[in-house]
Design a protein around this nucleic acid. Structure first.
Lengths: 157, 157
DNA sequence: GTTTCGGCTGGGCATTCTGCCCAGTGGGGG
DNA sequence: CCCCCACTGGGCAGAATGCCCAGCCGAAAC
């Protein structure tokens, strides 16, 4: 459940230049190809690397508006709400959080006006008592993992 | 600023099996290799595909606790706060949102107890007036993009 | 109507990478 | 003290890549 410096360097390298192959990776890291290959395989096995899915920009798909909605859920309606929200394409992410039946979800929309449509669709379910929405204006720190990887590697030293 | 059905099929295919190459992709899609290559290049140029970074699971790095913190910011301190939070590895993401100087950030920690340390570090700055934290218990819908891609393709038809 | 142009096809080419194998080495744990 | 595991450095066939080409087609421009 931990990574060493070589793993960390590998992850950072992969994060910066995802398209490089195992051979090039081994060259940059200064290890044999088999080693790089084995490390990579192990990271995937252990679940550290979940996958290499393409990062798609919703804005480039025509959904430039992002918002976070906090949902207050009626007791015992959790499963219904989850299923409902999973069926809404504009819901990119859903978490259940501490607090009285609360959920937090990330939404996207084609415009601020369109956001209303999305929210209406989200709350169009009995199990949802109330929704409080915060529209994202800026994203000073986009989802990142490198600093954490480096921190995790340091903690092991 | 839009994608057609072939683009959508390509994105979905790529999301499901990220490691397949251009040749295999063209076979699955039933088009010439050059076409698949060209579509892929264009999607990257247009910014629809931002990259293929590895998806790293913080839990597997030893950070199984995720939380969202809403920060109330003192007027005019935005830049300081952004710089401060960018320097904290456990801050995976930061957004500025509508509302009075509010920000929303995603945090991870090694444990619930460790979360206290992270929050302390986050709020250790004059510019931050107050922090309200919600700990994530479940993640019924992990960050996803496929449904939105399919929706975007349908809207074009 | 006719021309032009961008996208797609299907193919060929040299280069590179992959997946898989091997024997040999070195250090740490049993 | 020995064994095991990780790493090294190498070889091999097969596959994919990057890059080129000529030809075809439909749509938009003229």
């Amino acid at each position: 459940m931990t990574i060493d410096r070589l793993d960390a360097r590998l992850l950072v390298l992969l994060a910066r230049e995802p398209r490089i192959g195992v051979l090039e990776m081994s060259r940059r890291l200064g290890v044999a190809r088999g080693t790089a290959q084995a490390r990579l395989d192990r990271l995937r096995e252990r679940g550290v690397i979940r996958g290499f899915g393409p990062e798609v920009d919703p804005a480039a798909l025509g959904y430039p508006v992002t918002a976070f909605a906090t949902l207050e859920i009626r007791q015992g309606q959790g499963a219904d709400v989850r299923a409902h929200l999973a069926g809404v394409p504009e819901v990119l992410e859903l978490h259940t959080t501490t607090g009285s039946g609360d959920m937090l979800c990330r939404l996207v929309a084609r415009s601020n006006a369109d956001l209303q449509r999305v929210i209406d669709r989200v709350v169009a379910l009995d199990g949802i008592v109330r929704a409080s929405t915060a529209i994202v204006m800026e994203n000073p720190v986009p989802l990142r993992i490198i600093p954490l990887v480096e921190q995790a590697a340091k903690d092991v030293e």
